[in-house]
Design a protein around this nucleic acid. Structure first.
Lengths: 349, 349
DNA sequence: GCCATTTGCACAAACGATTGTGCAATCCGT
DNA sequence: ACGGATTGCACAATCGTTTGTGCAAATGGC
């Protein structure tokens, strides 16, 4: 421990300047004009404060003002394209408003979600953004009990505004694209489009399946349950499922809707075992985006969720100060493949 | 505003239980045994507290104890594979120690870095992890002035422990791999390996270039300056540079060391304009990892930085309580391609 | 039954800021 | 030169904890 000096407080500045702590306080937080402090005094105090490197103790200020300047967000994981974009956007929006963002990941564990929210509330966050919660009801209760404004992002929840991706629309557009590119030459069982990945009872997936079903039905008539393979998010599982499917069908289906990047990773794990021309007779789409996923040896249509719009819109709600329940849907973007693609390619921008 | 009730304080619990605030405090923070509070009283207070949903105001506690329970980290951006893994790991490590992680991104802006560090210090963070700082010196000064323990991760800095990736070793291994796979059939100017991407005067890139140079020199004799194209991180720039290079050489070089995913994205932007057999006579490696990057139509060796080990090691340093300067290097991993690869393929695990 | 411990708790002073209030000194008009 | 308004600031309470200290009552030994 080289130097034991602590951060200077307003009392230190007061002593050094011959003014009272309250005067120092009001000078340093900018309220001095309304408190009729003379400009001389203010200047003097500001100089002393600057020379000693004063900065307010935000815990003390927070305690006194009963607000912390913190704004909290919880999300499932950091190391994911979507959620890390959310973080980036959250941070920018929070700072614009002079708030300090506190982002916590809860690993999709309902217990952890609650504990984390309670911790954030204990730090007196001024609002809480709940992204992709697994137990929105419980979180809603906790926040209401503590009287903390909150809102849901990506996954809707009760008693607060919800800003979510328009999963139905995204899946509809993606399905349409897949359908329109399915080669007419393929017949028999392989002629059908398949949906793979995700959990049927989670909100986003169920909306996407709904859109897939409806859109495919409109074009092709009936969709069989067998065409929906909601086998979760684990890549290994998806790899096995797609292998089994290809075995059953005797080849790739004419259309494939892959529901999430992790499932796509698994699907690719099977694809690398196939000959290069296996992909000539199939149209592939993936809900969720990865720039490298767009560079594969076959074209892949991808849906990119508009994470920035989600958060920006959520903050707009926050700004209104109205935290009554409502549902706002943000449309995702369809990203065209960049692969060399049937003779033409997309120039890199 | 439906209900105006605030969170209960120890005073509320004290009134309700007939005990004094100090008794309540010591019961609820677990110090009651050493304060000789009877078990009866403790139980009673705990029940009341639980029934009212009491939780401590951590700002008040932090103020009193002069420590906040927060631990801060700054990093350049969230939406990046490497840094978001860092976040994930940081969070896990912080929580294991009962600390609340506060992660802020500073967009590689030196001004923003300093402001952010000052803000975190004002919240009385108990330590600061500085990841990938652009101005380590300045941050070091700020932290020392405030007497806040700090350490550097990924990019070294002065007056504190630095836990960094072993860029030299990673680049050496990657270069060796590229060299050993460069086809002997290629002759003339195309026979040389090239290094593309990154900024020559940033720490990591300079170490990598050093390793590339030395390793290539050992095997092939001289390395010409022209073989090092440190053109920054922008994909568009890398795309142009690789195009120009291919023009000059009349084709792809026999070996290519791509220094960063963003540069790789640019390189791919050019690659998609090439015929499929253009890649038969080149060995490609990329410093940094993306799972989809490993699934391309040609094999790509990738180096994955060990983000978890970086953070875990940094926290081990933190645990020792010794914040004196030292340098610790963590070796990255070389990831084999998963593409169908000269006849064999790697089974998906 | 008396004194020394021990037990069980309450009191009050911090921590560092904010903010309502009060009160001298100065200023101004006449 | 006198009264009222204004200026410029200091005082003190407060936010919700933690923690050193003090002091009755209960306990125990003899």
């Amino acid at each position: 421990m080289p130097n034991k000096k602590q951060k200077p407080t307003i009392y230190d500045i007061a002593r050094a300047s011959g003014a009272s702590p309250s005067t120092v306080s009001s000078v340093l937080n900018g309220t001095w004009k309304s408190r009729r402090i003379s400009e001389d005094t203010a200047k003097r105090i500001q100089q002393i404060a600057a020379s000693r490197g004063y900065s307010a103790n935000l815990q003390a200020r927070g305690l006194r003002k009963a607000k912390s300047g913190l704004v909290g967000m919880i999300l499932p994981v950091h190391d994911n394209r979507f959620f890390s974009s959310i973080s980036q956007s959250f941070e920018a929006n929070a700072r614009e408003r002079g708030l300090c963002p506190v982002i916590a990941s809860t690993l999709r564990d309902p217990q952890e979600e609650i504990r984390t929210v309670e911790t954030l509330i204990s730090y007196a966050v001024e609002a809480l953004f709940i992204v992709g919660a697994t137990d929105p009801e419980a979180l809603s209760r906790v926040c209401r009990a503590a009287n903390v404004p909150f809102l849901f992002v990506d996954l809707p929840g009760p008693d607060a505004p919800s800003v979510v991706s328009d999963n139905y629309h995204g899946a509809q557009v993606l399905t349409q694209t897949i359908l329109s590119e399915m080669p007419a030459s393929v017949t028999g069982k392989r002629a059908r489009p398949y949906f793979i990945g995700g959990t049927a009872d989670d909100y986003a997936t169920s909306r996407r399946i709904e859109a897939f079903r409806r859109t495919a039905t409109d074009t092709l008539g009936q969709v069989h349950d067998e065409q929906i393979i909601a086998c979760g998010y684990a890549p290994g599982r998806a790899a096995r499922e797609i292998r089994d499917l290809c075995d059953r069908l005797g080849g790739l289906p004419a259309g494939l809707f892959v529901n999430s990047l992790t499932a796509f990773e698994g699907v690719l794990g099977h694809f690398v075992t196939l000959p290069g021309d296996a992909f000539d007779e199939t149209a592939i789409g993936c809900y969720d985006y990865d720039p490298f996923g767009a560079f594969l040896q076959f074209p892949v249509h991808m849906v990119r969720q508009n994470s920035d719009a989600l958060i920006t819109t959520a903050f707009e709600q926050f700004d209104t100060g109205d935290f009554s329940p409502r549902m706002i849907e943000i449309k995702p973007d369809l990203i065209a493949p960049r692969t060399i693609y049937r003779g033409r390619f997309v120039e890199f921008g």
